[in-house]
Protein backbone atom coordinates (compact mmCIF):
# COMPACT_ATOMS: atom_id res chain seq x y z
CA UNK A 1 0.00 0.00 0.00
CA UNK A 2 1.41 3.34 -1.03
CA UNK A 3 -1.56 5.56 -0.28
CA UNK A 4 -5.22 5.37 0.57
CA UNK A 5 -7.02 8.68 0.66
CA UNK A 6 -10.55 9.94 1.12
CA UNK A 7 -11.29 13.18 -0.72
CA UNK A 8 -14.42 15.04 0.26
CA UNK A 9 -16.22 18.30 -0.39
CA UNK A 10 -19.41 19.82 -1.72
CA UNK A 11 -20.76 18.51 -4.97
CA UNK A 12 -19.19 20.79 -7.61
CA UNK A 13 -15.82 21.27 -5.91
CA UNK A 14 -14.26 18.74 -8.25
CA UNK A 15 -13.66 16.09 -5.63
CA UNK A 16 -14.49 13.17 -7.92
CA UNK A 17 -12.27 14.50 -10.70
CA UNK A 18 -9.41 15.10 -8.27
CA UNK A 19 -9.68 11.47 -7.21
CA UNK A 20 -9.83 10.22 -10.76
CA UNK A 21 -6.71 12.19 -11.67
CA UNK A 22 -4.77 10.64 -8.81
CA UNK A 23 -6.08 7.20 -9.81
CA UNK A 24 -5.15 7.68 -13.42
CA UNK A 25 -1.71 8.98 -12.47
CA UNK A 26 -1.15 5.91 -10.33
CA UNK A 27 -2.05 3.74 -13.29
CA UNK A 28 0.41 5.66 -15.50
CA UNK A 29 3.05 4.92 -12.85
CA UNK A 30 2.20 1.20 -13.24
CA UNK A 31 0.67 0.94 -9.79
CA UNK A 32 -2.48 -0.90 -8.83
CA UNK A 33 -5.27 1.59 -8.30
CA UNK A 34 -8.92 1.89 -7.42
CA UNK A 35 -11.38 4.78 -7.23
CA UNK A 36 -14.61 4.42 -5.35
CA UNK A 37 -17.23 7.16 -5.20
CA UNK A 38 -19.83 7.68 -2.55
CA UNK A 39 -22.76 7.79 -4.92
CA UNK A 40 -26.38 8.68 -4.54
CA UNK A 41 -28.28 11.57 -2.99
CA UNK A 42 -25.12 12.53 -1.13
CA UNK A 43 -23.87 14.09 -4.36
CA UNK A 44 -26.46 16.85 -4.28
CA UNK A 45 -25.90 19.32 -1.51
CA UNK A 46 -24.15 17.31 1.19
CA UNK A 47 -20.66 15.95 1.06
CA UNK A 48 -19.50 14.17 -2.05
CA UNK A 49 -16.51 11.94 -1.50
CA UNK A 50 -14.37 9.33 -3.12
CA UNK A 51 -11.75 6.88 -1.92
CA UNK A 52 -8.58 6.33 -3.93
CA UNK A 53 -6.05 3.59 -3.39
CA UNK A 54 -2.60 3.53 -4.99
CA UNK A 55 -0.75 0.33 -4.24
CA UNK A 56 2.09 -1.95 -5.28
CA UNK A 57 -0.07 -5.03 -4.68
CA UNK A 58 -3.50 -5.74 -6.18
CA UNK A 59 -6.13 -3.65 -4.42
CA UNK A 60 -8.24 -5.69 -2.02
CA UNK A 61 -10.90 -3.70 -0.27
CA UNK A 62 -11.71 -0.45 -2.08
CA UNK A 63 -13.44 0.55 1.14
CA UNK A 64 -11.13 2.21 3.64
CA UNK A 65 -12.12 2.93 7.21
CA UNK A 66 -8.77 4.41 8.33
CA UNK A 67 -7.20 6.29 5.40
CA UNK A 68 -3.59 7.46 5.45
CA UNK A 69 -4.75 10.79 4.06
CA UNK A 70 -7.89 12.89 3.96
CA UNK A 71 -8.56 15.95 1.84
CA UNK A 72 -11.42 18.03 3.23
CA UNK A 73 -12.66 20.74 0.91
CA UNK A 74 -15.35 22.05 3.28
CA UNK A 75 -16.40 21.96 6.92
CA UNK A 76 -18.91 19.06 6.76
CA UNK A 77 -16.16 16.97 5.15
CA UNK A 78 -13.70 17.86 7.90
CA UNK A 79 -16.28 17.03 10.57
CA UNK A 80 -17.03 13.70 8.95
CA UNK A 81 -13.56 12.49 8.02
CA UNK A 82 -11.13 14.08 10.50
CA UNK A 83 -11.76 11.28 13.05
CA UNK A 84 -10.94 8.59 10.47
CA UNK A 85 -7.39 9.59 9.50
CA UNK A 86 -4.91 6.92 10.46
CA UNK A 87 -2.62 8.05 13.31
CA UNK A 88 0.54 9.36 11.69
CA UNK A 89 -1.39 10.14 8.52
CA UNK A 90 -2.06 13.47 6.90
CA UNK A 91 -5.12 15.73 6.97
CA UNK A 92 -5.21 18.42 4.31
CA UNK A 93 -8.01 20.92 4.71
CA UNK A 94 -9.24 23.88 2.71
CA UNK A 95 -8.67 26.80 5.05
CA UNK A 96 -10.47 29.15 2.65
CA UNK A 97 -13.76 27.58 3.64
CA UNK A 98 -12.96 25.87 6.94
CA UNK A 99 -12.57 28.31 9.80
CA UNK A 100 -12.01 25.87 12.62
CA UNK A 101 -8.71 24.22 13.38
CA UNK A 102 -8.69 20.41 13.29
CA UNK A 103 -8.47 18.86 16.74
CA UNK A 104 -6.34 15.82 15.93
CA UNK A 105 -2.83 15.93 17.38
CA UNK A 106 -1.63 12.57 16.07
CA UNK A 107 -1.73 13.40 12.35
CA UNK A 108 0.04 15.88 10.14
CA UNK A 109 -2.23 18.89 9.60
CA UNK A 110 -1.87 20.93 6.42
CA UNK A 111 -3.98 24.04 5.89
CA UNK A 112 -4.30 25.11 2.26
CA UNK A 113 -6.18 28.29 1.32
CA UNK A 114 -7.21 26.58 -1.89
CA UNK A 115 -9.95 28.97 -2.99
CA UNK A 116 -7.75 32.07 -2.52
CA UNK A 117 -4.89 30.53 -4.45
CA UNK A 118 -7.22 29.41 -7.21
CA UNK A 119 -8.69 32.93 -7.36
CA UNK A 120 -5.15 34.38 -7.63
CA UNK A 121 -4.62 32.06 -10.57
CA UNK A 122 -7.75 33.46 -12.13
CA UNK A 123 -10.05 30.46 -11.91
CA UNK A 124 -11.65 29.33 -8.63
CA UNK A 125 -12.44 25.99 -10.17
CA UNK A 126 -8.83 24.84 -9.85
CA UNK A 127 -9.04 24.85 -6.04
CA UNK A 128 -9.18 21.06 -6.23
CA UNK A 129 -5.89 20.99 -8.14
CA UNK A 130 -4.24 23.13 -5.45
CA UNK A 131 -5.35 20.57 -2.87
CA UNK A 132 -4.13 17.72 -5.07
CA UNK A 133 -0.75 19.42 -5.33
CA UNK A 134 -0.53 19.55 -1.54
CA UNK A 135 -1.42 15.86 -1.30
CA UNK A 136 1.22 14.94 -3.89
CA UNK A 137 3.89 16.88 -1.99
CA UNK A 138 2.85 15.38 1.34
CA UNK A 139 2.67 11.77 0.20
CA UNK A 140 4.85 11.42 -2.94
CA UNK A 141 2.27 8.85 -4.04
CA UNK A 142 2.67 9.36 -7.78
CA UNK A 143 5.15 11.07 -10.08
CA UNK A 144 4.66 14.59 -11.45
CA UNK A 145 4.90 13.35 -15.02
CA UNK A 146 2.12 10.84 -14.35
CA UNK A 147 -0.14 13.60 -13.04
CA UNK A 148 0.58 15.64 -16.14
CA UNK A 149 -0.29 12.67 -18.34
CA UNK A 150 -3.49 12.16 -16.35
CA UNK A 151 -4.46 15.81 -16.77
CA UNK A 152 -3.89 15.68 -20.50
CA UNK A 153 -6.15 12.66 -20.62
CA UNK A 154 -8.82 14.22 -18.40
CA UNK A 155 -9.11 17.48 -20.31
CA UNK A 156 -11.17 17.22 -23.49
CA UNK A 157 -9.47 18.13 -26.77
CA UNK A 158 -10.94 21.64 -26.87
CA UNK A 159 -9.91 22.32 -23.26
CA UNK A 160 -6.23 21.39 -23.51
CA UNK A 161 -5.44 25.11 -23.17
CA UNK A 162 -6.35 24.71 -19.47
CA UNK A 163 -3.42 22.37 -18.90
CA UNK A 164 -0.89 25.07 -17.86
CA UNK A 165 -3.40 26.59 -15.42
CA UNK A 166 -4.07 23.22 -13.79
CA UNK A 167 -0.37 22.40 -13.59
CA UNK A 168 0.29 25.80 -12.05
CA UNK A 169 -2.44 25.16 -9.46
CA UNK A 170 -0.86 21.81 -8.58
CA UNK A 171 2.55 23.48 -8.31
CA UNK A 172 1.17 26.16 -5.97
CA UNK A 173 -0.34 23.48 -3.76
CA UNK A 174 2.99 21.67 -3.67
CA UNK A 175 4.87 24.81 -2.63
CA UNK A 176 2.73 25.16 0.49
CA UNK A 177 3.87 21.79 1.80
CA UNK A 178 7.39 21.84 3.07
Amino acid sequence: MILDVIMAGFGGQGVMLMGQLLTYAGMVDNKQVSWMPAYGPEMRGGTANCTVIVSDAPVGSPVVSEPKAVIAMNLPSLDKFEPLVKPGGVLIYNSSLIHRAPTRTDVRLIAIPANEIAAELGNTRVANMVMLGALLAATEAVSTSAVEAALKKALPAHRQDLLPLNLEAIARGRELVK
Binding site: S34, W35, M36, Y39
Partner: peptide, 10 residues
Protein backbone atom coordinates in the same frame (compact mmCIF):
# COMPACT_ATOMS: atom_id res chain seq x y z
CA UNK B 1 -23.27 -4.94 -6.98
CA UNK B 2 -23.33 -1.17 -6.64
CA UNK B 3 -19.74 -1.08 -5.49
CA UNK B 4 -18.42 -2.87 -8.58
CA UNK B 5 -20.72 -0.88 -10.84
CA UNK B 6 -19.61 2.48 -9.53
CA UNK B 7 -15.92 2.03 -8.81
CA UNK B 8 -13.07 2.59 -11.26
CA UNK B 9 -10.12 0.31 -11.87
CA UNK B 10 -7.79 -0.27 -14.77
Amino acid sequence: DGLLGQMMEP
